[in-house]
Amino acid sequence: MSDVSFLALNTKPSAQLSYTFSAPSETPKPVLVVFLNGLGLPQAFWQPIITQLKDLRKDSTLPAFVTYDRFGQGQTTDRDPQDAGAEDPTHGHDCLESVRDLRQFLTQISSDKFSLDLESVPLVLVGNSIGCALARLYAQEYPGTVTGLLLLDSVLANSDFVSVFPDPDAADFDPASIAPIPMEAIKAVRAGARRIFHPDVGNKEGLSRRNLRELLPDSDGPLLKGPSGTGPYVTVVGHDFDAFAEESAKMGPPKPVTNRFVNPYWHRYNEGLAKITAPEFSKGPIIAPGAGHFVQKDNPEFVVQELNELLEKVL
Rank of each mutant, 00 (worst) to 15 (best):
L224G: 06
K204E: 15
S18P: 10
L307H: 00
P143A: 01
Q16P: 11
T90I: 06
H239F: 09
F114M: 01
S129F: 04
T61A: 04
I109M: 05
H93Q: 01
L36W: 01
I130V: 00
G92T: 06
P42E: 08
K283A: 12
L156M: 00
G148F: 02
P182H: 13
E247K: 10
I178F: 10
K54H: 09
Q73A: 13
T11W: 09
L123F: 06
P166K: 10
H93Y: 15
A191Q: 14
Q104K: 13
L134K: 10
N299D: 09
K204A: 14
E247L: 02
V66H: 02
L41Y: 13
L9K: 02
L149N: 07
V164H: 06
A188V: 11
Q47E: 13
A139N: 05
L96M: 13
P122F: 06
I276Q: 01
D83Y: 00
L17P: 08
K113A: 08
G290L: 10
D3T: 13
D112A: 15
V164D: 03
L207I: 03
Q82R: 15
G74T: 08
V234P: 00
V295P: 05
K283R: 15
L152W: 03
F173T: 02
A249H: 04
G131F: 00
S98L: 09
A135R: 05
P232E: 08
K29I: 13
E309D: 15
L102T: 04
N308E: 10
G206Q: 04
D160R: 05
S219Y: 05
G72W: 06
A133R: 02
T77R: 14
G202I: 10
Q108H: 12
D78A: 06
A185N: 09
V234R: 09
F241V: 13
K283H: 12
I276A: 04
P13T: 01
F105G: 03
P256K: 06
V126Y: 11
E246Y: 13
V162N: 11
A135M: 04
E247R: 03
F161P: 07
P232F: 02
H293A: 03
D174E: 11
L32P: 04
S60Q: 14
E141Y: 07
T90P: 09
G74Y: 08
L102R: 04
E301G: 14
A274W: 00
Y269Q: 03
D55P: 08
I287T: 11
P42Y: 09
F45Q: 14
Q305F: 10
F173S: 02
D200T: 15
N211I: 15
T67E: 00
H293Q: 07
Q305I: 08
S208T: 08
L151P: 04
Q140K: 01
A176T: 14
N270Q: 13
Y269L: 01
V304C: 02
S120G: 09
S60L: 13
D101I: 03
E246S: 12
D169T: 15
V99G: 11
L152D: 06
I196F: 12
R209G: 05
T61L: 05
G148H: 05
D55I: 15
S159L: 08
E271Q: 09
T230N: 14
T90H: 12
H267W: 14
Q305A: 08
E205W: 13
C95T: 11
S5Q: 15
Q108R: 12
V34G: 02
P217T: 06
Q305M: 12
R57K: 08
A135I: 07
S5Y: 12
S18W: 12
T61H: 13
F241M: 05
D55S: 14
P13E: 03
Y269A: 01
P222V: 05
